[in-house]
Design a protein around this nucleic acid. Structure first.
Lengths: 267, 267
DNA sequence: CGTAGTGTTGAATTGAATCAAGTGTCGTGG
DNA sequence: CCACGACACTTGATTCAATTCAACACTACG
């Protein structure tokens, strides 16, 4: 948001050279207690399938930094790639800036999801990652993750699966963007969020959007005005209730119909 | 398209018919001799960085089938996932069918590229993969690839990198589809093909499109008429020459300008 | 030589963008 | 605690890029 927030990021030390033990200060007391072993997300994050002792090994390579504030960056476009991040709480967006300065949001990330995998091949982050609210993350140095994956077949398997999942999701989004109407995109977006919140044991039918209308628009290839209009339309159809950023899904089945129904086909 | 074409996969092949107009359709002489060790793509495919003996191990898990004909399928949407495929020659498209029967192309694959990674997480292929011309592939059983990656750190690293590369590419496409004009999309598409042909030592400025206008349109979120019109426009601007499926890029720099220039900004 | 698939081109239509006011919400400092 | 200002969002009028509809041309191949 404001300039002061981006400045805060520079001093807070999420970059690798600012590891815990930095002279700048100490971590929160309770942070030391957090580990994959007691994380409520461990069943849907990287540790899936790992044994207790293996989880401990994983824990040893993971850095847990102090919480991020809204607007803080995990990394920026073209930074050297070194780590991937698992969202522990809060939410993030990734975005790229075009030469003309216009940003386009490329993804939203909720707890249990991994950020930064697009940098693995090129050794640079291809986008910037920014916190949308008060959030916390686990920082996983990629080379260490690779080393550990050599020892733990299950971990290798799981990371392959998480990357495959990202690829599958991206292909779905491709289809969405290349052929769906504004209404279908928004409906699909809401259903996707719903499923992801449900996955982390939150309500599938009532949630608060962490992002602005404009962010949704950039992500879905629409303008913020269109996002606003379509949300209004869906509300008038009594499929959802919109109150500022709070969304209630009234009829999941009907929303799925909106997504699946080709508007050019007679119903 | 017809059932007889998938059957064709099983018929035996007199090897190399050089299909006119097909720059990528060429085959090595004798299939029995083909291995990663002598494959001209080994420097840009899975074996990158492997030692001789390691390449031999990789060779042992790879199946090399008879050539595929135009229209043959590697797999279909919802088939159980078991293997990933490396394109050895020719080209492929992946596509999904919507419930209403309309297809959308999700990707094109050229030699040295990997098909099927979107099935890793769900254990099902999420799209269908079809040959666009006379093609040949290497079939890599995924579970064996995982096992071997446990033994060969370089192989694990390389496969992580190839998946990361797919993710990065998908994010770029996301940006393309969500904010670029028809002209920008086509220009970017042509430049992308150019770079990929150059990667396999083919001409970066003159190539034959293996896909139809309609395929390009589905991939880029445009209609086939728009694809045709924009190709005509770029030709009138003397940036390219179009002759049926043969494309000549006259001015790469100018094409890049087309992609990068925000049409809403005054030039 | 004829047919089916593929590609081009033109005219009319339309969904979403753009332009343009507005209102609502929230954090901040007085 | 309230008033201010900056964002965030909504809504309406108009425009425009791309689609749709339609007709026709080309090519490839049995």
């Amino acid at each position: 948001m404001t300039g002061s927030q981006s400045k805060a990021m520079a001093t807070e030390g999420l970059m690798p050279e600012f590891r815990s033990g930095s002279a700048l200060g100490e971590n929160c007391r309770n942070q030391a207690e957090i580990s994959c072993g007691n994380c409520r997300l461990s069943e849907l994050c990287l540790p899936i399938g790992l044994k207790k002792s293996e989880i401990h090994q994983l824990d040893n390579i993971i850095e847990r930094n102090r919480p991020l504030h809204k607007g803080d960056h995990l990394y920026r476009q073209n930074d050297a790639f070194s780590t991937v991040f698992a969202v522990r709480s809060g939410s993030f967006k990734t975005y790229v800036l075009t030469d003309s300065g216009v940003g386009r949001v490329t993804g939203f990330y909720l707890p249990g999801e991994i950020i930064g995998m697009d940098g693995i091949a090129s050794h640079r982050y291809n986008c910037s990652a920014q916190s949308l609210e008060h959030s916390s993350i686990c920082e996983i140095p990629f080379s260490q993750l690779e080393d550990l994956s050599q020892q733990l077949p299950v971990l290798q398997h799981q990371f392959f699966a998480m990357m495959g999942s990202e690829i599958a999701k991206d292909h779905q989004v491709h289809t969405l963007l290349s052929s769906y109407s504004a209404e279908q995109r928004i409906a699909s977006f809401l259903l996707g969020l719903s499923a992801r919140y449900a996955r982390v044991s939150l309500s599938a039918t009532r949630f608060v959007l962490p992002m602005r209308r404009g962010d949704i628009g950039e992500y879905l290839g629409l303008t913020l005005e269109t996002v606003s209009r379509v949300l209004g339309l869906l509300q008038r159809k009594e499929l959802i209730v919109v109150s500022n950023r709070e969304i209630t899904l009234l009829d999941l089945a009907a929303l799925r119909m909106v997504v699946e129904t080709d508007p050019s086909q007679p119903v």
